[in-house]
Amino acid sequence: MKEKRELTCIGCPMGCQITVVLKDGLVTDVSGNTCKIGDTYAREEVTNPRRTVTSILKVVDGELPVVSVKTGETVPKDRIFAVMEEINSISVEAPVSIGQVLIENVADTGVSVVATREIKKV
């Protein structure tokens, strides 16, 4: 069975309109992208969509009450809320350094949650 999917690339702010052609669930053609990122994104998006999750995590004794975090790599789109649940369940103590791993293997995705900001202890 042949299927055509129209996507907006999220690889960068250009937002290229990409057409992906699938045959029996396999990608046979990608067009409309202007770079390699678009090709990769399109292939993944129709088979196994993934996203980077960015959020905040509670900090104890920090200059701010929360630290911004992100998943070190993308996680499966359908795991976003599972990732959030785990982020919401923990808190860390200041100081926190930028890039510090705060959760390993979040929600069994194999991906870490890392700090994206430095938080000094107060």
Partner: peptide, 12 residues
């Protein structure tokens, strides 16, 4: 807004 934000922030 940027197209990527419409996809990632709304459509998702």
């Amino acid at each position: 807004g940027l197209k990527r934000n419409i996809v990632q922030c709304l459509q998702d």
